[in-house]
């Protein structure tokens, strides 16, 4: 299994002229699960999109290295091709574009795509008929989240960023999704950066490291034991 490492250092980013990330440092290696927690407005989603290269998210300084290759300035597709994946908090509806066609365009062999999607859908409890819909069209919030994990597992990236994957999922669905992600860490050494607002993700997803993001930077990093401290005190104990 190849070893991959995502190394983020001193990352500052602006959205609409306002600095949201004020210097983020992080390192995620193959097989590791990192969870970033933080209050509303702390820059969690900005971090996800800045890493993926969404238009409108301007990186003003710092570096994003994946296996030593600089991703700052690269197109989103180049970042994905380098091995990065982002499961969106709000997956975008793409009318008329079917999931299997998008997966083929992303490089999955046409002969395999239907079977791979179907087997991944079964693993996270996504009804198979939903795979035939145009991407995310008329899916519930929970279905769209599962669909993101189906795509993740079909594409097998080196490092996956999961932006609020827990929102909109009930506890059983969150369990199924978490099992699939943990299995991926063993299966092909997926490295995970899960971003969330809620502790309940930590009840389901085994984290190796927990980071607290406040005011656009990571103010505290610790092991899984930090979960209980966050549970008791919330974010107020952590100041930027």
């Amino acid at each position: 299994m190849a070893e991959h490492v995502l190394r983020v250092s001193g990352l500052r980013a602006e959205v609409a002229g306002r600095e949201v990330l004020t210097g983020v440092d992080l390192e995620v290696r193959s097989g590791e699960v990192h969870v970033i927690m933080g209050p509303n407005g702390s820059g969690k989603s900005t971090l996800a999109h800045a890493l993926m290269g969404r238009p409108g998210y301007t990186i003003t300084s710092g570096s994003i290295l994946l296996d030593g290759v600089e991703l700052v300035g690269a197109e989103p597709a180049e970042r994905a091709q380098a091995g990065l994946f982002l499961a969106l908090q709000q997956p975008i509806e793409v009318p008329g574009v079917h999931l299997k066609d998008a997966m083929v365009a992303a490089g999955i062999p046409p002969a395999d795509v239907v079977e791979r999607l179907a087997s991944e859908a079964a693993m996270v409890g996504l009804r198979p008929e939903l795979l035939d819909r145009p991407m995310n069209v008329d899916l519930s919030g929970g279905e769209a989240k599962r669909n993101e994990i189906v795509q993740l597992a079909t594409l097998r990236p080196a490092i996956a960023i999961l932006d609020e994957i827990d929102s909109g999922l009930d506890v059983d669905a969150l369990g199924a999704v978490s099992r699939r992600i943990e299995e991926a860490t063993r299966e092909w050494g997926l490295g995970v950066l899960a971003i969330t607002h809620f502790n309940r993700l930590l009840d389901e997803l085994r984290a190796d490291m927990i980071h607290v993001l406040v005011g656009g930077r990571i103010v505290e990093t610790g092991g899984p034991e930090m979960a209980s401290r966050l549970e008791e005190t919330g974010y107020t104990a952590f100041s930027s």
Binding site: L88, I92, V94
Partner: peptide
């Protein structure tokens, strides 16, 4: 929509073709 497809590793011209066809 284009960003979403690009984030799956589909480069921009291919993403745009998919979107126009999908339209």
């Amino acid at each position: 929509q284009r960003y979403y497809l690009e984030s799956r590793g589909i480069d921009r011209p291919a993403a745009e073709r998919l979107l126009v066809r999908g339209f």
